[in-house]
């Protein structure tokens, strides 16, 4: 198992390198003028003459061959220098640091209910195969499955925000902004809801959560239904396996049969889907942050894209790719942990 993980960890940088190269290559399609904007403070940029522009391009190596520029960029990335963001009006690295916690908070809160509820309902449905509760859960899932997530988000926005006014858009209310900027609010995890709890500010916590409910439901809605379906069918399949019969023939309690013998096997295929889902939740935040007018990485990247903010797009892409690659690694490791046939070959 350790050898397996080490082997996978060794390939990891290679994959990341490949991904960054592709991202970098695609950005070069923009042309060198646009690219230069990433290196220069925009206030200065507009006033430059053509000669100065060329000189700057030379200075930043924009006239060098692609591979040389890639090397330099990579070097910058390794030193934490991702360039200047026009949209963020600051360095990309800083802009990312500010926004990632908001997005991470959203994704993390979405993951647990989705995985928990999805898998749990899937198992309950399978164990009660063809009984009332199974049918009920399945109908519920089919409805969930048939709604595009953004349509659902818009509904939530309309009903709970505009009409009922229960759930407000944005990341938090105005008064929270003042509160968290004051010196007696300490940042510990940078995940606002957690920091609020750690600071003993339950009012802030509740405000943040209220702002999170809509987005969470929107991005996770489709996924729990999907996870439920996968879990249910996987569990049904496992329950028909001979080793389940063997377990029952031993006289084991049905609870043990389900919880020990069936669940773990049923979760093997679910791991893949669940992992892909977690990764996609991060991607899903882009749409949700736009719809709910939230500050976060997703809305930042979306804005950067519309304004051709080259450096910011690169930074965001780098972050998302890293999540993807690391996420896939975690899935594979989980897979191996659950299934000895993979672990031991």
């Amino acid at each position: 198992m350790t050898a397996y993980i080490i082997r996978r960890l060794l390939i990891l940088p290679l994959i990341l390198l490949g991904v960054t190269f592709i991202i970098f290559g695609m950005m070069q399609l923009l042309g060198s003028d646009k690219l230069l904007a990433a290196y220069v403070n925009p206030n200065v940029f507009d006033k430059l003459t053509d000669e100065e522009l060329e000189a700057l391009k030379d200075k930043y190596g924009l006239n060098d061959p692609l591979i040389v520029r890639y090397g330099k960029w990579l070097n910058g990335v390794l030193h934490g220098d991702l360039g200047w963001s026009v949209v963020g009006k600051t360095y990309v690295s800083e802009a990312l640091m500010q926004r990632i916690p908001y997005t991470a908070e959203l994704a993390l809160y979405a993951i647990f209910p989705v995985i928990g509820v999805g898998i749990w309902l899937g198992i309950v449905a399978a164990v009660n195969h063809d009984k009332f509760i199974d049918h009920a859960i399945r109908i519920f899932a089919v409805i969930g499955w048939s709604f595009p997530d953004f349509v659902f988000g818009l509904f939530i926005l309309m009903i709970f925000y505009s009409f009922l006014g229960w759930l407000p858009p944005g990341n938090f209310s105005n008064w929270v902004e003042d509160a968290i900027k004051s010196s007696n609010f300490h940042y510990i995890t940078h995940i606002l809801s957690l920091d609020a709890l750690l600071n003993g500010r339950f009012d802030i916590f509740w405000d943040v959560i209220r702002h999170l409910i809509g987005p969470i439901i929107t991005i996770s809605w489709l996924w729990w239904a999907y996870l439920l379906r996968i879990t249910r069918s996987s569990m049904l399949e496992v329950l028909n396996k001979e080793y389940i019969r063997t377990a029952r023939a031993k006289g084991l309690d049905e609870k043990v049969v389900i919880n020990k013998h069936a669940k773990r096997n049923a979760l093997i295929p679910v791991t893949t889907v669940g992992g892909a889902m977690v990764i996609n939740l991060f991607a899903g935040t882009v749409i949700v942050e736009v719809i709910f007018n939230r500050v976060g990485l997703g809305s930042f990247v979306a804005q950067a894209a519309t304004q051709l903010d080259y450096a910011a797009i690169m930074g965001g892409a780098l972050f998302y790719s890293t999540i993807l690659v690391v996420g896939n690694l975690i899935i594979d490791i989980l897979y191996a942990a659950i299934d000895p046939r993979i672990r031991l070959g």
Partner: peptide, 19 residues
């Protein structure tokens, strides 16, 4: 079951839990 009356099945490949 398993105590007074025990049973073995045809396919040893699938009758044991793989995990």
């Amino acid at each position: 079951r398993g105590n007074d009356i025990a049973m073995i099945f045809q396919e040893p490949m699938v009758a044991l839990n793989p995990v």
